[in-house]
Amino acid sequence: MYNIGYFSLRRPQNNYYKILDIDQQCSLELIEELCLDDLAILDVLIIEESVELNFTNICESLLEIRKKSNIYVLILSDKEQTVFTSQMVYLKLGADGVFSEDADVLDLIVKNILKRIRKETVEKKDQGSSFEMIPKKSCVLINKNQEINLTRQEFLALTILYKKRNETVTYEDIYQGVWGKGPEELQKNRVCNLVSHVRKKFSDVKNSPVQVKTIRSIGYILDTDSYEKEFQY
C-alpha cells in the first residue's frame, strides 16, 4: 500500500484524481492545507495547479518542501495557467516532473515512481533492519544501536499496531487500547495526533523498520512485509 498526497484547492476534482481514488495499490489523501510535518508518511505528493493554487503558491510550497523532505513531487499543471518558463522554475525548485492534465500519462509516471520506491524498499530489506521494544523504559531499540524514547501512550499505540502487524488497526482499536474508552467515546483527532508523534520520532531513522501506513477513514497498518526484522520484548 502506497500513500499518495494530492494537494488541491480546486472543486470538483479532475479525472486523474478519480483514477487514483479507486486504485487498490494506493491510499489517496486529498490535502487542502499542506502540513510539512506530515510529508514523512507520504510516498508521492501531487500538486494540482489552478487559479486557487497558482504559480506563486506552488513555488513557495516547493521551497518549503525541499527544506524538509526528498519526497517525490509532481506538478499537475493547468494549461490555462502554466507557461514554459513556469515549468522550468518548478523543476529548478525541486519538482520531479511537471505534467498536463493527461490522466493516462500521469498515471504511468506515478506507477514508474512507485516501482522505484518498491525497489528501494527491497534494497532496505537486503540490508536488514530490526527493532526491540523495551517496556520498562518505554523505548525502542532500532537496528541494535539507536534508542528511540516514547511516551507511555506512544509506546502503547505502537504495541497495539505491532500485535496486528500487516493488518488494519482501526481508530477505535487504538483509542480503546490507549485510553481505555469504548468506540462510542472515540476522539479521532487524539488518535491521529498520537500516531503522528510516533511517525515523527522514526522519520529520520535510516532504514527504520517502523513504517505506519494510513488506511483512509479506517485507521493504520504497521507494515512489516518489506523488512527483515527482529521484534523482541
Rank of each mutant, 00 (worst) to 15 (best):
I75P: 10
L63E: 13
T56Y: 11
Q87Y: 02
V122L: 14
L156N: 04
C35L: 12
L150G: 03
I47A: 11
K124T: 02
I134S: 11
S196N: 05
D225E: 11
V205H: 03
K111H: 15
Q187L: 05
F55V: 12
I148Q: 02
D104V: 14
I134C: 15
T151D: 01
G94N: 07
R116V: 12
A103Y: 02
L28D: 02
Q176G: 01
L161D: 03
V198Q: 01
Y17A: 00
D96A: 14
E33C: 07
Q211T: 03
Y6E: 05
S50G: 09
N145P: 00
P183K: 10
Q13A: 05
K115N: 15
R199P: 11
K111D: 15
E228A: 01
I134G: 07
R66G: 14
D104C: 10
D96Q: 15
E167Q: 12
D21W: 01
I4H: 05
L36T: 12
S27T: 02
G97W: 02
K200N: 15
D126M: 10
V140L: 07
A95F: 09
S50R: 03
E64A: 12
L39N: 15
E228K: 02
L158Q: 02
T121C: 06
D78I: 09
K206Q: 03
S130A: 11
R152K: 08
K201G: 03
Y17I: 00
S61A: 14
K92G: 05
Y17D: 04
N166Q: 08
Q153H: 06
S69P: 12
I71K: 11
R118S: 14
I47L: 13
L76C: 05
F155D: 02
M133I: 13
C139F: 03
N54A: 13
N189P: 01
S226G: 13
K79P: 07
E80W: 11
Y233V: 03
D78H: 06
E29V: 07
I134F: 11
C26N: 13
C59A: 09
E32N: 11
K213Q: 07
I221C: 08
S208A: 08
G97L: 06
D21P: 00
S129M: 10
Y175P: 00
L186H: 09
Y175C: 00
G177R: 05
D126K: 08
Y233Q: 03
V51H: 12
S77M: 05
N54D: 15
S226D: 10
L36H: 14
I142A: 06
T214F: 02
F7R: 08
Y227N: 01
Y162K: 13
E185P: 02
K213H: 07
Y175D: 00
I109P: 01
K181V: 00
I22N: 13
E123I: 14
Q87N: 09
V44S: 08
I109R: 10
K200D: 15
I47C: 10
K213L: 13
V83P: 00
E123A: 09
K125S: 08
N193C: 01
L39D: 15
N207F: 04
K125G: 04
C35D: 15
I46C: 15
S130T: 12
S138Y: 14
S203M: 13
F84C: 04
L161P: 01
K124H: 04
D96I: 10
S69T: 08
W179N: 00
A157T: 02
V210T: 04
E33R: 13
E101L: 10
T170F: 12
V73E: 12
L76I: 09
D107A: 14
V191W: 00
R116A: 10
D38C: 06
